[in-house]
């Protein structure tokens, strides 16, 4: 609760400064939120050359609309909401699909495959083996996450990497909380199935 109050106080202090004409305070806001904005842009926009314009557009919109910010959410959530909807408009303009429903529903045979040869991720015989497994896992997952739809990629990132709550994600995407949970469930399941299939395929070799 204290943290929330502190966040609001910091947000209010920075916004007052910006509205008073101090653009350096806006630079602070950018520094504080650009990680989250980058996560959303990188997950939703594949064309590298468009990301720069979109990032700039997001902050110019935020600056323009700052006087209308009503402290109903954290400033970072509000900026993430602008980011998400700016990316969404871009996808719509380019006629790109935000979400697809073509998940492969066939279940991998779980009895015959276990990740890392049946070992728990925490029970490796030595550090090298553990490092190799983690590197390989990160790489496989990076590829598989890239194959997800922009919406699913974004939801997975906001929940697992940015550690936002379902409520905050619902505010950013303007989707009902139940829908967010349902999309997240499907995205995780799809990733898990692909991961298992990948490991099974490698084991067969």
């Amino acid at each position: 609760m204290n943290k929330i109050r502190e966040n609001i106080q910091t947000d209010q202090f920075l916004i007052d400064k910006v509205l008073g004409g101090d653009t350096n305070a806006f630079a602070v806001i950018i520094k504080n939120t650009e990680g989250l904005v980058a996560q959303i842009i990188f997950k939703m926009i594949n064309r590298v050359e468009d990301r720069k314009d979109i990032a700039q557009d997001i902050y110019l919109k935020a600056f323009k609309n700052l006087p209308g910010f009503r402290y109903q959410s954290k400033l970072s959530t509000w900026i993430a909401q602008i980011s998400y909807h700016t990316c969404l408009s871009y996808l719509e303009k380019k006629k790109l699909v935000l979400t697809d429903h073509c998940y492969d529903n066939s279940e991998p045979d779980e009895d015959s495959i276990e990740l890392s040869g049946g070992k728990s991720s925490l029970s490796f015989t030595n550090q090298t083996e553990k490092d190799i497994f983690h590197r390989e896992l990160t790489e496989i997952l990076r590829e598989e996450i890239d194959l997800l739809s922009p919406l699913h990629k974004t939801l997975i990132t906001l929940y697992h990497n940015e550690e936002l709550s379902y409520d905050e994600i619902a505010q950013i995407t303007q989707l009902p909380e139940g829908t967010v949970k349902s999309y997240l469930f499907r995205a995780r399941k799809s990733l898990k199935d692909k991961l298992l299939r990948k490991y099974k395929k490698e084991e067969l070799w």
């Binding site: 806006f26 950018i30 990032a55 276990e114 896992l137 990132t157 697992h160």
Partner: peptide, 29 residues
């Protein structure tokens, strides 16, 4: 355990960063 490994892998994905100075770019506009 499979989900634990999956979540671990997702959490350890590299954080994307812009290859330009965003605040300079925005402040100039």
């Amino acid at each position: 355990e499979t989900y634990r490994v999956l979540f671990f892998g997702i959490r350890h994905q590299p954080q994307p960063v812009f290859d330009f100075n965003l605040s300079d770019l925005v402040l100039s506009k």
